[in-house]
Amino acid sequence: MSKHQPQVGYLIKQAQSLLRIHMEDALRPMDLSVSQYSCLHSLLRDPGISAAELARATFMTRQSMGTMLQQLLERGLVERSKPSAGGRALPAALTEAGATLLSAAQAEVDKVEQRMLSGLKPSDLESLGYGLNLCINALRA
């Protein structure tokens, strides 16, 4: 690798780490972690998603998701239907309180993202999104 060529993987990881730190700071006053925010966001985006799908969507284990969903249930931010006759719990859904908190959290997360992207021109942002999608698709293949 040329010494002038950036180590893109390292730069992506560094940006991801800093983004997470700033998101955690922004969400802390709401008593939300980035993982909890991601869970609430996924439930809004994909109502009826199963706990296993929710875990995959938020990069968590099924066990960790179960614990987190219980915490969100206890806070009244999500609700679950009663278990079916077979004993299986139905998927979680946002409560009105969960949707309200998510809206406030989204505003704070948007501010963090705007700060992160503030040095980019619109054409830079378009190129960045295009390039990252190419990277994602190449690794999925």
Rank of each mutant, 00 (worst) to 15 (best):
M1T: 15
M1A: 14
K3S: 13
K3H: 15
Q5T: 15
Q5L: 15
Q5S: 14
P6E: 13
Q7H: 13
V8K: 01
G9V: 01
Y10R: 00
Y10A: 12
L11Y: 10
I12H: 02
K13P: 04
Q14S: 09
Q16T: 01
S17V: 06
L18M: 13
L18C: 08
R20T: 04
I21E: 13
M23L: 11
E24F: 08
A26W: 00
R28E: 13
P29C: 02
S33R: 02
V34C: 00
S35T: 14
Q36Y: 06
Y37L: 05
H41L: 10
H41P: 09
S42C: 06
S42Y: 08
L43Q: 01
P47A: 11
G48T: 09
I49S: 00
I49P: 00
S50I: 10
M60V: 01
M60A: 00
R62W: 10
Q63V: 05
Q63I: 01
S64L: 04
M65Y: 03
M68E: 04
M68H: 01
Q71P: 03
Q71G: 08
L72E: 02
G76C: 10
E79G: 04
R80H: 12
R80I: 11
S84H: 14
S84A: 12
A85S: 11
L90G: 11
L90T: 11
P91T: 14
A92V: 09
A92R: 04
E96R: 10
T100R: 11
T100G: 13
L101N: 06
L101S: 03
S103K: 14
A105Y: 04
E108F: 06
K111P: 12
R115P: 13
G119T: 07
L120T: 06
E126Y: 09
S127F: 02
L128C: 03
G131L: 03
N133K: 09
N133V: 03
L134C: 02
C135I: 05
I136T: 07
N137A: 06
R140H: 06
